[in-house]
Nucleic acid binder design. Structure first.
Lengths: 196, 196
DNA sequence: CTTCGGATGAGAACGTGGTTCTACTTCCGG
DNA sequence: CCGGAAGTAGAACCACGTTCTCATCCGAAG
């Protein structure tokens, strides 16, 4: 893929993200994306075989930026003593990012439940990096639980995200429940714990 | 609402469920539903203000039947000693039901992420009954955790359901992960546990 | 430098399917 | 028995993803 093509592709994704963040996924039209990005409609379909495909690529792009920001932010802050605090803080920042871009959060949810094969790939990859980031914050979790625990927290996170995005819960309620989950799950492994 | 109207409503929901289970949500057309149910298209919109509305009602209906079956089945079987086994068994049966009706499972996922206000209500209600059923299977969980634990298991369940429905994982993998989660979370409260 | 095939631009055209509208009929409470 | 609400059958509307047309452009081979 030539540099020019890579640039076009990037423009398409950026335009999609801008438009989604402005008006929401449901109002996004392929025509708008092509106009905004300066790429012809037909050409858009040369790069992304369907709207779902484009949305998945855009979601992946934003999510990657987001994770970079989160982990960068984290490096700058003092790591607190208890392991669960680090995770809670990480998740809180993630939630705040969603709060800042509710339409993009909704995009994430949309892509997560898409049956488009490319979307599934993308979601798989996103989930994997998410779990890895979580795992990095919990060094005290023993090998036997290093698969399940991040998976579990990720699932709870997704659940709260969906609940918030669909208007079933407020962001603070969502975060409160999520924090409770994290503390419960990490309790056995935290330094100040009673057992083990 | 007159008996005649209740009947029409039921016919609409039944037709929707039949068609969804036959062809999948994405192929469901309002016209088909009205034809199959013997209700005029315009009238359909008098009962359900949109397709999302109808889908939510249908999903709720199916899910209620499903939960009835599950709890009834459960009463007939011998309750095993360990608490987590009961939950695992319950969840396994739920998964099997999904396997039998993959298109309806997908419907459930669709409705779960719908932003339709009625859908949100319905999803909230479904989640509540689900948590209640789970809670009934874990009498040994102390009061402090009787909110979080079912919520957590429900979230993990939803997550696996989505992963399966979108083709990101097989049903057996999904169940295996879910079982692991359940055992991890319930470990501290099971009779044969090392601690507490 | 010329040339030619694939890529792109601009936008019309197509097809699907949710939703609404029309004109007529049926049902039912007062 | 009447009037209006509710229902029927189906056409009509319309938004939007996707595809198509054709003129133009670009970039690599010769």
């Amino acid at each position: 893929m030539s540099p020019r093509q890579l640039e076009r592709r990037k423009h398409l994704i950026d335009a999609a993200l801008t438009l989604v963040s402005e008006t929401g996924v449901e109002r996004l039209q392929m025509k708008q994306v092509s106009e905004r990005s300066g790429v012809a409609l037909g050409t858009t379909y040369r790069y992304f075989s369907s709207k779902d495909h484009l949305l998945a690529a855009a979601a992946s792009d934003w999510r990657a930026k987001l994770m970079d920001d989160l982990t960068a932010e984290l490096r700058g802050s003092v790591p607190p003593a208890r392991g669960s605090d680090r995770v809670v803080r990480f998740v809180r920042r993630g939630m705040r990012a969603f709060q800042r871009q509710p339409n993009l959060a909704r995009l994430l949810v949309t892509v997560t439940v898409s049956t488009d094969p490319f979307a599934s790939e993308v979601v798989d990859a996103m989930a994997a990096t998410g779990r890895a980031s979580l795992l990095a914050l919990m060094p005290d979790v023993p090998p036997a639980a290093r698969e399940v625990v991040p998976h579990l927290i990720d699932a709870a996170w997704q659940g709260e995200l969906v609940a918030w995005v669909t208007g079933r819960s407020t962001l603070s309620d969502a975060f409160a429940r999520l924090e409770e989950v994290i503390r419960l799950v990490l309790a056995p492994y935290s330094a100040g714990s009673m057992a083990v």
